[in-house]
Amino acid sequence: MKKLHFDYCMEIRYSADVSWCCYTIKCIPKDSDRQKISNIKIDMIPETKAEWATDSHGNRYIYGSNEIPHSYFKYHIKGDAECGCATHESVATETEEMIYRHSHGITDPGERLREYMESIRASMPSFDDLRSLDKAKQIMERLHGYLVYEKGCTGIGTGAEEAFSIGRGVCQDYSHIMISLLNMSGCSARYVTGLIIGEGESHAWVEVVDDGKWYGLDPTNNILVQDSHIKIGCGRDATECQINRGIMHGGGEQTQDIYVNVSEISPGQSIISRGALF
């Protein structure tokens, strides 16, 4: 079990004024059996009245619009997370098992992924008899060895089949491909957005249902999700739990910077004093 402090900050700078914008931000981690969240603080610039809501995947989000001209937008959330309180993420309902058992759109397998699935089965005749979590570990292990981590080869809308054919990708692609393979194996699986210990960007991984519980697996790093991951949201694929979505009028060119930092709170250090850094 680890006590973590997290920071997620997204800044968008525009070359011209945005005269109107609307946004949906799905970036509010919540409690589960595995993680306990506390001391959440959210800052937004410009300050607007935001509405709170929960989507069909159970993700909390805020949404709103803004008519004040602005050329800078910031969303900053920080807080503390106690992670690794349980080995599973949460209990899976029967409804969840159904919804996440079928691939669709981005996670739909094509010929290459179907062949790959067959090759996994062929190399391991007992594969279909494994429990879901073991199937997932097998798939993760192989996929991690197969796919090369490389930025810039794939984009937000890249499907599992396409990314697999390219053979390169980032955490999003590892996750989509793994979901596709898991669905082909008859497992319920979903896409997870979150943060991982260290400095950098937001992360993505996969959850699979085993014996009525969701377990996290991180195919990019070939590890189980235990006490170094903070879950933010989930969906059938990346588009359904996209951290930030917006539409604006005006704005010209835009540059987006995302800053993420997750660090372990050492036992002697008080949470309050860390918060005072901001």
């Binding site: 069909s56 995947h57 159904m98 058992r101 079928h102 669709h104 059938r236 359904e240």
Partner: peptide, 8 residues
């Protein structure tokens, strides 16, 4: 759940 008409 695999139908395009189903909206999650």
């Amino acid at each position: 759940f695999a139908s395009s008409g189903y909206m999650v």
